[in-house]
Design a protein around this nucleic acid. Structure first.
Length: 312
DNA sequence: CGCATTTGACCGGCGC
DNA sequence: GCGCCGGTCAAATGCG
């Protein structure tokens, strides 16, 4: 329960919760300081889906083992702490989201941290240091660590109900570490993108209180297209992969799901929440998805968010 | 042989 | 200052 205590929530940072079953999306906090206006984009375009792709009901028919992300939140302060969290609070049901009970609780366990700090010249510093062979290994290491700390990459995390630990996302990863997690029988695995020019990292751990849930945390942005995208590219058949530096340039098969897309956009402040709500409604009205579950998107939005939208 | 994984050691941050 | 913990390194090992 200590993670509940630990987690703070900044009012001016967005928290997004996604219910995989009903596509319920809520925005926890004010995002009035967001400048990027995406209202001209369609909801699903924002998430990287082609127009005629999301007209198909198969969009949400995810493979069983890829039953992604029962709940996700994104913040700039904290990150997911899966090992110290009760499972029932990790999965935010649509009913919970609708009441806003979880959203209004500062200690939401599903928090992933996104740090926007550090876009300086630390890389150059590192290279310079590494060129100086006279320096000791230890000194090099120390410098590198300092630089890396300065240059903390943005992160986002999502939770996935999956039997397999490592979820295929189209990129190639190399494992570089494994650590035992305190109070958890499940280790945390550290991966790095195999592309030499790309320093994206990925952390994968299983929630000890609910072993069926895998928490994946990405750190940084890919600077290259995914190998799978190059292989699988089929216009108008697959959603665009939002983890790419140039959205729209490549495609990815359906296993890369909508929640990852959403979180990536949220992470990069590419979502204007009012536009998101509006487009979400438009999207939902064009499908039977929510109707099938007897839930309207409005029910999944905290009143403050809706009010904010109406006042625009 | 080249590449990926494993795993113990090491380091920095943080709380006490 | 000390100990704990998270994150990373790098040598050893495994595998195709």
């Amino acid at each position: 329960m200590e993670s509940y205590k630990d987690i703070k929530m900044e009012d001016h940072h967005p928290m997004y919760f996604i219910d995989n079953n009903n596509f319920g999306v809520t925005n926890h906090s004010l995002i009035s300081d967001y400048n990027i206006n995406t209202s001209s984009l369609g909801f699903m375009e924002l998430l990287g889906f082609h127009q005629d792709f999301y007209s198909s009901a198969s969009v949400f028919e995810l493979p069983k083992e890829e039953n992604y992300c029962p709940a996700v939140c994104v913040s700039e302060e904290e990150e997911v702490k899966p090992s110290s969290v009760a499972p029932e609070s990790q999965i935010i049901s649509s009913a919970t989201v609708a009441t806003g009970n979880v959203l209004n609780t500062p200690s939401t366990p599903n928090c992933s941290s996104i740090s926007s700090e550090g876009h300086g010249d630390a890389d150059g510093e590192v290279e310079n240091h590494e060129q100086q062979n006279t320096k000791t290994k230890q000194q090099l290491k120390a410098k590198k660590t300092v630089s890396q700390k300065k240059q903390k990459e943005p992160r986002f995390a999502f939770m996935t109900k999956s039997e397999v630990d490592f979820l295929e996302d189209g990129y190639r990863w190399r494992k570089y570490g494994q650590k035992a997690v305190k109070n958890s029988p499940f280790p945390r695995n550290y991966y790095r993108c195999t592309n030499a020019t790309c320093n994206v990292k990925k952390r994968v751990e299983r929630c000890f209180s609910d072993p069926s849930i895998v928490v994946t945390t990405y750190e940084g942005k890919h600077t290259h297209p995914s190998p799978m995208n190059m292989m699988m590219s089929r216009p108008n058949c697959y959603p665009i992969n939002p983890l790419l530096p140039s959205p729209g340039a490549f495609t990815l098969p359906m296993q890369f799901n909508i929640n990852q897309s959403f979180n990536y956009l949220a992470m990069n402040n590419q979502l204007d929440h009012a536009a998101f709500v509006a487009q979400g409604r438009r999207f939902c009205s064009n499908t039977e998805m929510l109707g099938d579950h007897g839930i309207d998107l409005q029910d999944l939005m905290p009143s403050a968010v809706l009010k904010h939208e109406y006042n625009r």
